[in-house]
Amino acid sequence: MRAETAYHGEMGNQFATLATDNAYNAHTDRPAMLRLAGDVKSLRVLDLGCGAGHLAAELLKLGVAQVIGIDGSETLLHAARERLGEGAILHQHDLEEPLTFLQDQSFDLAVMALVYHHIEARAQLLAEIWRVLRPGGYLRVSTTHPTADWNYFGGSYFADDRVELPLGNGFISYRRMPLEMFLGELLGTGFVLDELVEPRATEQARLVDSHRYDKTHRVPLFLTVKLRRP
């Protein structure tokens, strides 16, 4: 993501703490990403926008051979290093730029949790993911649900403008987009859609935040897709 949209400094620290055990990241989005990841034992995984390493940590517990994590925020990468230790190789890199340091067809799985909507150079990023995935490899992507953005920000459902959402003492910036745009970009790259889910919070979220737990079971907040590189 662009330097101005990465979570730096205090915002990065707030997000690293928040994502550890909150209703949305920890108990709605992350379980869906892990379920769609399937059997990851012995796989080489690319974690794009790895943040503080929460998803990478869970993947390592499931037996992946190696995780390569990329994020634009040194603040979040510092938290990821503390969480993962020697379990992952981490790179600070702007996802708006090509992944030139990664070899062709060198990964079995790529994951991108709640990152895609932050990116402007999405066509370039998808082409790079296609390049570094082996044939038959998989991509997992989660994003904000288009109807959730429409309900919150108003205007046209088909808008694809940049919006800001409060986070801690600041705001996060991302691009909302309709479903046809989100899926169209992914499928237009050549990926095949294997599964789409609108995740609801797990029971653990009820203990953390019963209001947000109930909300995820009434209205769609996130969208998660499982894609395959033919």
Rank of each mutant, 00 (worst) to 15 (best):
R200C: 14
T28K: 04
G137L: 09
A110L: 05
E97K: 15
P135W: 10
D214G: 12
M177C: 06
P230E: 07
L167H: 11
E58A: 14
L59R: 02
L125M: 13
G190D: 05
R206Y: 09
P166A: 06
A205E: 08
E74K: 13
A80L: 03
G9P: 01
A113I: 02
L34P: 00
D47Q: 02
L207G: 09
F15D: 01
Q14A: 13
V111P: 04
F158H: 11
E4D: 15
I172Q: 15
S156N: 12
P135A: 09
R200F: 06
A16F: 07
F158V: 00
D149C: 15
L109M: 15
E96I: 09
L133P: 06
A110H: 08
V197I: 09
H93F: 07
E128W: 12
H145K: 12
G12V: 09
A3V: 04
L109H: 15
T224N: 10
I119H: 04
A110G: 06
R228H: 15
R175L: 02
W130P: 04
D160I: 12
M33W: 06
I129L: 15
A23F: 02
A32N: 02
H93V: 04
L221G: 11
L165A: 14
R175S: 07
D149W: 05
V67W: 02
D21Q: 13
E97T: 11
C50W: 05
L46W: 07
G155M: 10
A123G: 10
L207R: 14
R228Y: 11
P178M: 01
Y174D: 03
L55K: 00
T75E: 01
H145I: 09
R228T: 14
C50N: 03
A148E: 13
A201M: 03
E4T: 11
A56Y: 00
Y138E: 14
M1A: 08
F101R: 04
L165F: 14
L43S: 09
G69P: 04
A121Q: 13
Q103H: 13
S142P: 09
A201Q: 03
F15K: 03
L114A: 13
R134A: 13
E198G: 08
V40H: 06
I68Q: 08
T202A: 13
R81P: 00
P230W: 07
H54A: 14
V141M: 07
M112V: 06
L126W: 00
H78D: 06
S142M: 08
H91L: 13
M177P: 00
G69W: 05
L133I: 07
V192I: 14
R30Q: 12
G53L: 07
N22L: 08
G137W: 06
L59P: 03
L102D: 00
L125R: 10
D71S: 12
D47Y: 02
A56W: 01
T143S: 14
G155S: 07
R131L: 13
L193P: 10
E82N: 04
R122D: 09
I119D: 01
T144E: 15
I129V: 14
P146Q: 05
R30W: 03
M1I: 00
L48P: 01
P31G: 05
R30T: 09
G85W: 01
V45G: 08
A16T: 05
Y152R: 15
L187R: 14
G137Y: 06
D94I: 08
P135I: 10
G69F: 06
D71W: 07
